[in-house]
């Protein structure tokens, strides 16, 4: 699976892990991973450790998610980015909208 989710024991943290290519092929799966959660209660983290590559459609998906979860009031962390993915996020100034590790 290119998109897998896991919750912490207390249910307050949701981690969405991406593996392989983060591109338009996972549009549906990625959306399913966060639709319906209560963003006021749950911290969302995107784990990019196994993501090899991302394109501009993935940037769009991340922004859509952020809007869905409440826009500026929702904190979303993106962690474990490889340098090339980090660079794409940097170029697109995603550090303004997300906490990037």
């Amino acid at each position: 699976m290119a998109v897998t989710t896991s919750s912490s024991d207390d249910g307050k943290a949701l981690t969405i892990a991406i593996s392989g290519n983060f591109d338009f092929n996972v549009v549906q799966d990625f959306r399913k991973a966060y639709v319906g959660i209560d963003s006021a209660e749950i911290d969302v983290t995107i784990d990019m450790r196994e993501a090899e590559y991302m394109d501009s459609s993935a940037l769009g998906m991340l922004l859509n998610m952020k809007k869905h979860l409440g826009g500026d009031s929702a904190d979303v962390r993106i962690i474990n980015c490889r340098p090339q993915i980090k660079k794409i996020l940097d170029i697109s100034r995603f550090d303004k909208k997300f906490k990037i590790d």
Partner: peptide, 16 residues
């Protein structure tokens, strides 16, 4: 636009 979830491909090309 910073909020838009599209039109992000070209800026990537320009930056790289």
């Amino acid at each position: 636009d910073e909020e838009d979830s599209f039109g992000r491909g070209l800026p990537l090309i320009y930056s790289l």
